[in-house]
Computed example of a mutant assay.
Amino acid sequence: MSPQRRRVPPGRAGRLKLRHSLDSAQRGADLLERKLRLLLDKERTLRREADEAGRLWQTRLAEAETWLVRGVLIGGEQALAQAVPADLARVEIEWTSLMGVTYPSAVSWRAPARSPVDRTPGNTALAHAEDAYRAAVRAAAEHCTARTAADLIAAEAETTRQRVRALRRHWIPRLTHELSIIELALEEAEHEEAVRRRWAASPHRRSPR
């Protein structure tokens, strides 16, 4: 007899406990499967968003590098150094939760502000390069946000899948088997009791010596 079986009380009390445990396990598996479907749907959505943001990032980066080369060819490297603003870009990540998983959901972006003392790009190509790099940085942030969110959701989905597998393949079958054993024992006991009662009530039973 397994340790789990030894914790089950005998008779009808044990049957009641096992039925309750089995019902709870089945309801838990159903809830986890619904959670898994929601997580997988969300992961697919986030993967698409990450792919789109990744393609946009690569496009903007290629555009920025093209304009940068043109700007440097026109104005030289000195013009490039003079065109960089002193301020820095600001990226803030917003977080949300789904089915117990906290993940990044949005990006708040603020481009670097050019102060009155900062010099502007020395030529049109560098101005285009600046705009393209800003767009590329924002797309990169959105790509990383969506990819990280998808990875976190995927990890929770895998954990949920394992829990469902444990319930469906191990715990529920074990409870079902234990319940069948105790129900068979109760059925046999009830049958024996019925036989004894019929025998006791029979007028033809032999008197004890």
Rank of each mutant, 00 (worst) to 15 (best):
M1F: 14
M1T: 12
M1V: 13
S2H: 12
P3W: 05
R5F: 11
R5N: 02
R6A: 11
P10M: 01
P10T: 05
G11C: 07
G11A: 08
G14C: 04
G14D: 03
H20V: 09
L22D: 06
D23F: 03
S24G: 12
A25N: 10
Q26W: 13
R27M: 14
G28M: 10
D30E: 15
L32H: 04
E33S: 15
R34L: 14
K35I: 02
R37P: 06
E43M: 12
E43W: 08
E43G: 06
E43Y: 08
T45N: 08
T45E: 14
R48V: 09
E52M: 08
E52A: 08
L56H: 12
W57F: 13
W57D: 00
Q58Y: 00
T59F: 09
T59I: 10
L61I: 06
L61S: 13
T66C: 11
W67V: 04
W67Y: 15
L68E: 10
V69W: 09
V69T: 14
G71I: 03
V72C: 06
L73V: 12
G75W: 05
G75L: 08
G75I: 04
E77D: 12
E77G: 14
Q78M: 13
A79I: 05
L80N: 01
A81Q: 15
A81D: 13
A81G: 10
A81N: 14
Q82K: 13
A83P: 06
P85N: 13
V91D: 02
W95C: 09
V101G: 06
T102F: 03
Y103D: 07
P104H: 05
S108T: 13
S108V: 15
W109K: 03
R110H: 08
P112Q: 07
R114F: 07
S115L: 15
D118S: 04
R119Q: 15
R119Y: 11
T120P: 04
P121V: 05
G122Q: 11
T124L: 15
Y133H: 04
Y133R: 10
R134T: 13
A135F: 01
V137A: 11
R138D: 08
A139R: 06
A140H: 13
A140K: 15
A141Q: 01
A141K: 03
A141M: 07
E142P: 03
C144K: 11
C144I: 01
T145F: 04
T145S: 02
A146S: 12
R147A: 09
R147Y: 06
T148C: 09
T148A: 10
D151F: 01
D151R: 06
L152Y: 00
L152V: 01
I153T: 01
A154E: 08
A155E: 08
T160C: 07
Q162S: 08
R165K: 09
L167E: 07
H170M: 04
H170E: 13
H170A: 10
W171V: 13
I172N: 06
I172D: 02
I172M: 08
I172A: 02
L175N: 01
H177P: 00
H177Q: 09
L184S: 04
L184Y: 00
A185T: 07
A185V: 00
H191E: 06
H191R: 11
E192T: 00
E193I: 00
A194V: 00
A194P: 01
A194D: 07
S202R: 10
H204F: 15
R205Y: 06
R206H: 15
P208T: 13
